[in-house]
Design a protein around this nucleic acid. Structure first.
Lengths: 151, 151
DNA sequence: TAAATTGCAGATAAAATAGTCTTAATCTCT
DNA sequence: AGAGATTAAGACTATTTTATCTGCAATTTA
């Protein structure tokens, strides 16, 4: 469903939102706690900053920060920025001409499911995810990583 | 959502079911009508024959054929054989320990959607898809391919 | 101003997926 | 039995995705 790149981005966004701090959070902290390659995560987060979801700051106490309120960022926003909107718009069988006018055999069934997915993802705010994460004791990383969380 | 390989397999299965003929259908006919690389489609269909969904026959009037009745093959079966069941079972964020006991922040939301997807895919038979395909004038291939369909 | 820290950008490498080609095996027809 | 047709199987190539590495730019602190 989602690319690995996208899961990293969503995880990181939840992590940042769950921290609820007004200061910059270093990418190194995020990557080591979520067990994601630092340089790779850097690029993923750049996509989020370029999209205006986060801001970044270089230098000694730099890092990233949410650019918007967590309740104003939806899961759909995060996924769309990183993976694009194809999965929410395209034909399931990848047929270019498929649409309401000329539908493929799975068209109607998939549109129904897709619409529901979009509805849920759009209605799920980063704030809600971060809240759940906090309640769940920030269950984002692998079990072995949880043990040495610096949070 | 689906790999390209999987979309090829589903398309081919619908094509074969829609033909409703008791004879072998050559992979060459399928590949040229659906605009899929012949050799590649060969491999995809082998997965379906190995899984017992199709049978194949070599030689002059050989080809492939459904091994079961079209109403006994579900869309879920086709997808599971080719892409596996990970997408229907795994955590959306790919976290290995995620489950009912220890859930990730998106767990509940995704399980709900995933269950609905499985329900619909399981309830959609190849017979239904083939019927729709026939009604829709076999709208499987790209527009430019439709023009020269040999069907 | 110098040094340390941190994100940014581009090159490179590794792995997974998609696609192509060649040969072998099997079937039908004559 | 032999020739042609068709799937099976495996090697090989190409493309995309994922991951790593190196140097640079910006910021803070001393």
């Amino acid at each position: 469903m989602l690319s690995k790149t996208c899961t990293y981005g969503v995880q990181a966004a939840i992590y940042v939102a769950a921290r609820k701090c007004e200061d910059w959070i270093s990418i190194n902290e995020i990557s080591s706690n979520l067990n994601i390659s630092f340089h790779f995560l850097t690029k993923v987060l750049q996509q989020l900053t370029n999209a205006g979801i986060m801001t970044s700051q270089r230098g000694v106490h730099g890092g990233v920060m949410l650019a918007k309120r967590a309740e104003d960022v939806s899961l759909l926003d995060l996924i769309s920025v990183i993976d694009g909107t194809d999965v929410f718009e395209q034909c399931m069988l990848g047929l270019p001409g498929c649409g309401v006018a000329e539908a493929c055999p799975v068209h109607d069934r998939w549109v129904m499911l897709r619409t529901e997915i979009v509805r849920v993802f759009m209605g799920t705010s980063l704030e809600a995810l971060a809240h759940d994460a906090t309640m769940l004791n920030l269950r984002l990383a692998h079990p072995e990583v949880l043990a040495r969380m610096t949070l």
